[in-house]
Design a protein around this nucleic acid. Structure first.
Length: 238
DNA sequence: GCCCAGGTGGGTA
DNA sequence: TACCCACATGGG
């Protein structure tokens, strides 16, 4: 595969070319790391709970908390509603921020009662509408809302996290407005709205960010970047 | 001991 | 709108 050459910022690069670049990045990450299989059939409710527990927390610790909830037999909306908040906090303690997260989970299951705990009914709506509804629940912000929309409901809303921002910034692909919505628009406006693509792409960006250096702008272990003779950062040729 | 991990809400200017 | 800060455990 021939090098793509110098990367330009999203402000200057034509829409079609940016879409091509984003797909090329995806192709290379998939080739290097393989499918990541995030949230494979854990069921939508467990995925929602995991998305909240995962806030600013290493996934290993989220798994400990989920294990506690399962062992206690309370990993269902009804059971979590019945459980005293202090007891819930004790169970999710390994995931950190346990008092806050217990409160967030309570807010979530309180909301689900509106649907009689029927998640399929809740997810049976427009992607944007579902996202807005989730944002109205205390404790759910942009990233968690998108994680739920994408990984629990299977609807195409790209998840932006600090890893995604770092990688895009490093590639010189940062949006003009460096807000959550700005980064998300980069994907929404230049890729087909495909939940499976967004699912795997986000997971691959996460995997790549962990595999490469956090501090060095140009990392020798990065399969996306190399320095060309002019000193410009370009997509590495594969 | 220090930094980081699949962020969010509340307060301030 | 753009910064701060608190929230907290576990691993490297």
């Amino acid at each position: 595969m021939a090098p793509l050459g110098r990367l330009e910022t999203s402000k200057t690069v034509p829409s079609r070319a940016l879409g091509h670049t984003l797909m090329e990045i995806y192709r290379r990450l998939l080739e290097r790391y393989g499918p990541q299989g995030w949230w494979p059939g854990d069921g939508p409710f467990e995925t929602m709970v995991g998305a909240i527990l995962a806030q600013n927390t290493a996934w290993r610790n989220v798994e400990r908390a989920l294990t506690n909830l399962k062992a206690a037999g309370v990993l269902s909306p009804g059971a979590l509603r019945s459980l005293p908040e202090e007891e819930l906090a004790r169970l999710v303690r390994p995931s950190g921020y346990f008092l806050t997260k217990a409160r967030k989970l309570k807010a979530l299951v309180a909301h689900l009662a509106r649907y009689g705990d029927d998640l399929a009914a809740m997810f049976r709506q427009d992607t944007r509408a579902l996202r807005e509804e989730l944002l109205g629940i205390w404790g759910i912000g942009d990233e968690t809302a998108d994680a739920i929309v994408l990984y629990a409901a299977g609807l195409p809303s790209f998840v932006i996290d600090s890893y995604t921002r770092r990688i895009l910034d490093r590639l010189g692909l940062m949006p003009e407005r460096r807000t959550y919505a700005g980064y998300q628009a980069l994907f929404h406006d230049h890729l087909t709205r495909d939940a499976l693509l967004y699912n795997e792409y986000h997971a691959l960006l996460d995997r790549h960010a962990k595999a490469t250096c956090r501090k060095t702008p140009l990392c020798s272990r990065c399969c996306l970047l190399e320095t060309c003779p002019t000193g410009a950062r370009v997509l590495a040729s594969s």
